Amino acid sequence: MDQSNGVKKLSTSELSIFCYQFSVVLKAGLPYIEALHLLSGDVFEGRMKHLAHQIYLDAEQGMPLSEAIAVRGIFPEYMVAMLRIAENTGRLPEVFEQLSKHYEQNEIVKQKVKNALVYPVVLIALMAAVILLLVLKVLPIFHEILLSVGGEIPTATQFVLDFSEGLQNGLIIIIGLVALVAIYLVLLFKTRLLLAQRDRLLIKAPIASKLYKQAIVVKFSSALSILTKSGMPIQSSLDMILPLMENAYVEEKLKMAISAIEAGKPLATALEETELFPKLFIRMITLGDKTGELDQMLDKISSIYDAELSRGLHRMTVSIEPTLVIILSLVVGAILLLVMLPLINIMSSIG
């Protein structure tokens, strides 16, 4: 029975710490019930301490560890399934260590993506604020000055001034449109109402899709490596990986791959047909499958694409900053020149 009762689920960093501490005490040779008692008494603090104590009480009454963890309702299904496999194969310490690395890697990928997106968004917002300040506050002042001194206003300058006046008159409409866009983005990325649209957008978006697909490769290969090391069949492993992808479009593609494998196609061919994975990934999977070292090859793939993802995110952030600064400088410079030059000409003619 799920005992979550609306309790917030554990973050990937908390999951990594939980699994790591478990792996340490289990590798020391302690039975898992004694390990839980130790963790709940001296190692964990706060929420994690209470959680470990509740799991300990259930395990002490004879409940399997995976079940005691599952009934909390705040652990991922993937982790629970992996622990069930570990209990059946007697590999709890190794699987806890693998899960710790897996969630640590997931947290790193999430932070990399988040950090790569925050700075450009802030810079774009500042750029928009500067341009709006010029158009709505500064340009009207120059317009009044030009009208007071007289003289002919060039067409380009008149267009900018008319645009400024139009923005002022339609400010409420513009604010409404911005609010609608903001609501749409919140619905798109923070709720499940537009889930299918969001998931397809992340895969198809011109700039973000390459990095997003690399993140998928990292998650997919690291998860499949853990499962293959645990002796899981490929079809069952792929079934368990589906929720980990956190993308309905990717899940549908992987379900097609599972059907293809069940129909007799090799793993590499089935994954290639999804069009989600790069050619290098497919070649390495083919080689690992043929040599019987698929789990080691998956670890290598995860390392390669994790490094590539880091480089890609770094290149994107490094290139976005000067690009946005140049755009801002050109826009502000153009606006000021279009207004200042006629004013200078008028003043020169008066002089």
Rank of each mutant, 00 (worst) to 15 (best):
V178E: 03
M347S: 13
I226T: 07
S221C: 05
V43E: 04
E107A: 03
A129K: 00
L336Q: 01
S164P: 06
L194P: 10
L227Q: 12
E87P: 01
L117G: 00
K112M: 06
S23N: 02
Q54D: 15
V331L: 08
R84S: 12
V217L: 01
L180A: 15
F189H: 11
G41W: 08
I304W: 01
L211P: 01
S319R: 06
H53W: 13
Q214W: 08
V113L: 15
E144S: 15
L211V: 00
T323W: 04
V7S: 14
N115L: 10
Q296R: 11
A263Q: 11
S259P: 06
N345K: 14
L38E: 07
L195D: 13
V130W: 00
V339K: 04
K253P: 06
F75V: 11
R84D: 13
V160H: 04
E87F: 07
F75W: 09
V138W: 06
L195Q: 15
L294M: 13
L201Y: 14
L39V: 04
P93N: 03
D58C: 06
A116K: 04
L123H: 05
R200Y: 09
E87M: 06
Q158P: 05
E321P: 02
R47A: 06
T317E: 13
S209Q: 02
I141L: 15
V109G: 00
I234T: 04
K101G: 15
P206G: 01
S164N: 07
I326F: 09
P322H: 07
V217E: 02
A334G: 15
L202F: 11
L188W: 10
I108Y: 07
M297N: 03
L276Y: 00
L330N: 06
L298V: 03
D239Q: 11
Q105V: 00
D289C: 06
A205Q: 05
G231C: 02
G333E: 04
M316D: 02
M1C: 05
I17G: 08
E152Y: 12
I17S: 12
V121G: 12
E144I: 09
Q197C: 07
L180E: 03
L126W: 03
L123P: 05
I203H: 11
